[in-house]
């Protein structure tokens, strides 16, 4: 039913090699389930993709437990080399060098990601790589509020999408700024992204059977005539331990 149709759309979203996918959420509705969903798809048995996961928010065992319920064993996959996990929770980017600040932390992190991507993406083996960053707001915290460093870092990461055909999936929070002037990072991100997914709570408040609504904006969707078009879809969701139910608004009683 609806769920299948939406799943199909989602498949198209997840077949997004070389693209930048941005997930935006808020305190009331976490968008982390989308990250888990995409991770599960990338790591499924049918695909041979490799996921490079840069964790700023949660430790490995958090994702391991969640993905186990979704049918992926991250320990086995990381032993096979299909899942590379960088725990960046203690990253402090800014070092004081002779009174001037350097951004060595983020540069080092980019080199790590670049190196991992280059080793995997040899020209003879056409393996798709997905780079996931689980909380961009914490990258900004690590850079002590310097959003320009974060934007620089993301631009560098974006070059990997063309250089080695990586997919970049980013999670950020929409409601962390008290005024619009400070949200330069979010605006920049929306420009960088090819696909933007926004998770929001229902306007009517908290409900036990609908956890929120999702807006997917695909800037480069190809329609039936083969033309590139912007496409926006809205649906609601209910998150479960081993799956997520998607349905169109009003289709559930």
């Amino acid at each position: 039913m609806n769920n299948e149709a939406i799943e199909e759309d989602e498949t198209r979203v997840s077949d997004c090699a070389g693209r930048v996918v941005l997930i935006q959420d808020c305190v009331e509705t976490s968008g982390a389930f989308l990250l888990h969903h995409l991770m599960k798809r990338k790591l499924s048995r049918e695909s041979s993709e490799i996921v490079v996961f840069v964790a700023f928010a949660h430790p490995f065992y958090h994702y391991d437990r969640i993905l186990k319920k979704l049918g992926c064993n991250l320990v086995t996959l990381s032993q096979k080399g299909r899942f590379i996990f960088f725990d960046m929770r203690k990253l402090d980017c800014l070092d004081e060098v002779g009174g001037g600040r350097t951004k060595s932390g983020l540069v080092e992190l980019f080199h790590k990601i670049h190196k991992a991507a280059e080793v995997i993406a040899s020209p003879e083996t056409k393996i798709c790589i997905t780079i996931m960053i689980d909380d961009l707001s914490l990258v900004e915290v690590a850079a002590q509020g310097s959003s320009s460093y974060v934007i620089d870092f993301l631009r560098y990461c974006r070059t990997l999408t063309t250089e080695v055909g990586c997919t970049l999936i980013l999670l950020n929070h929409e409601d962390i700024y008290s005024n619009s002037e400070e949200s330069t990072l979010n605006l920049e991100l929306e420009y960088l992204a090819d696909i933007v997914m926004k998770a929001k709570p229902l306007a009517t408040g908290l409900a036990a059977d609908v956890h929120g609504q999702l807006t997917v904006l695909n800037k480069r969707s190809i329609n039936e005539h083969g033309k590139i078009k912007k496409r926006i879809q809205n649906f609601q969701f209910k998150v479960k331990e081993n799956s997520v139910e998607y349905f169109y608004s009003g289709s559930r009683t």
Binding site: E28, T29, S30, H36, I66, L206, H211, V239, K240, E241
Partner: peptide, 18 residues
């Protein structure tokens, strides 16, 4: 109660009352 942590799970905690 503004927010409840989701630890080791992706399912949001829906409190009986907030």
């Amino acid at each position: 109660v503004h927010k409840v942590a989701q630890i080791n799970t992706q399912v949001p905690v829906i409190l009986e009352a907030s």
